[in-house]
Amino acid sequence: MSTSTSPHPAPAPAPAKTAKTSRLRPSGQLWTVLRLHRTALWVWVAFVVISIGVLLWVRYGSTGVDAAATLAGCGTAGHRACDEWMWSDTALVTTRDRLLEIGQVLRNLAPVVAAWAGAALIGRELENGTAELAWTQSVSPARWLATKLAVPAAFLTVGAGVLVASYRMLLDWSVTHHMLRAGYEKYTLYFNIGPATVAYTLLGLAVGALAALLLRRAVPALVAGAAAAWLLTVAIAPWRGSLWPVGAVGDSSLWHLPGSDSCGGGIYNHNLIDSVDPCISAQPADHYLPVQLVETGIVLALAAVLVLISFRVLHRRNA
């Protein structure tokens, strides 16, 4: 937003090419993408750094330390059983809520990325004609789109990968301290701690790009891209339970975190969380990786198909 305070309604900053560039400076199209979208780049870097800060704070902040201390020694003489959940303990409930909220943020990256890709990355350039300008400057449309997608994809993969790995470490910590109860909330958390989250982020990029190429205007592409990405994530979610043959009894739509307390030992108060009975439907923990990988594969394949369609649309427009 730093550029927004400039006194003039600035057009897209033109890549003012200097004659002498240093060896480290990327050249040509790559430089253009990095330079043009530097605000978004910094926002993404800041988001990743701040999120990691929040994760560290949840664990090492006073609330997290209190929550761990509350449950320390559970199951031994003079303490309650580990599976007895104290809803009235503020530190515990707050920590649990934070874990869930971070999970929600990670789950909803795809629509945000799609909105950005649709509006700022591609839609804006098609709307104001700078894309056509680039295509006349010895950059073919296909190469233009390829760079536009590859650079953000690299940043998104690294950033989301780091976030997912950190979040997983935080969840492992909370599982060791018996902070997670059986069922519902684990289901929410479960899908955020594997490569599928990274795949969804990339799917968001592909959806936004396609929306922009079809609509060729920034704000409609923003809205359509975000809505479509959100719908896709919602549409895929119900199928997760049936992605892999189920050995356990009952409804296959609920999961256990690998390594957590067994479901039978968990306490679950249906008056306090929404409506799902968890304990009848746990999946064995060793199903975790296959299901994650299958889901990741499906999401990545979908993203690849959308990218292919995007190139086709671009080709047809310019033919």
Binding site: T70, G73, C74, G78, H79, E84, M86, S88, D89
Partner: peptide, 9 residues
């Protein structure tokens, strides 16, 4: 007391 106890102690 805002924070509820967990242990009997």
């Amino acid at each position: 007391i805002g924070d509820a106890c967990v242990s009997d102690q």
